[in-house]
Amino acid sequence: MTGPVTPQSPGAGVPAIEIDELHKHFGALEVLKGIDFVVDPREVVCVIGPSGSGKSTLLRCVNKLEEPTSGRILIEGDDITDPDCDVDAVRRRIGMVFQSFNLFPHLDVMGNLTIAQRRVLRRSKADAIATATAMLERVGLVDKAREFPARLSGGQQQRVAIARALCMSPDMMLFDEVTSALDPELVGEVLAVMRSLAEEGMTMMVVTHEMGFARRVADRVVFMDDGVVVEEGPPAEVLGDPRHERTRRFLSQVAERDLGDPPP
């Protein structure tokens, strides 16, 4: 660990996310069967795998929306599985975007973007609005500041959700199948925002079914199946020339779906 005087700075050799021997049970069902996993600062990691493979549960464990059964999770060196850890403080450094957007329907877009800045970071109203406006510009929705979420398209809602997370100035972002609930023609605008974030050096852990995004944007692709990491590596390797039979089978099924074959 660093000395008492030096503040913790990301990139100083400490991984952004470090997962050790993580197990998660839901009752008798073991969803994660010993995951070891590291995400370095400024790295973009895409987690792929069939539904039920445990990839979303893994992501939700990283900011403790799910309580791990055993194992350790370190965020920039802080052990969030330690009962003494202030999880709220750690979560402030982690932005999360959900499949179902989860915007606050009783607040307009500006309210969605400022409420946590005001309550959690104790920013002044002017500061919060300035930050929110900057983030809305970044996702291309500055003209929607006074709209309520119900009046936005799915793609716009998801871009607002990304902006909301960015307002907290997080050190890293988690994306949980963020395009799965979108109409196909709206997927592109969300992926474009994510891609620009990646290019600016944001640390990202992305659970996704978008193989094209994983191939082009990820530094590393992790394939999970049945609660374990089957293989990981550069996208060209894992997606182009997988070593494991399970990975090959999954990729061929996904490819078939992309061609629009009728279901069996």
């Binding site: 929306l65 709220d88 403080a89 979560r91 179902s100 989860n102 946590a116 970071l121 959700a161 907290m168």
Partner: peptide, 15 residues
């Protein structure tokens, strides 16, 4: 109120 609302709020660091 959907569970996702609490999750979104907690993920923003709210108690």
């Amino acid at each position: 109120v959907p569970r996702g609302q609490v999750e979104a709020a907690r993920s923003l660091g709210m108690s």
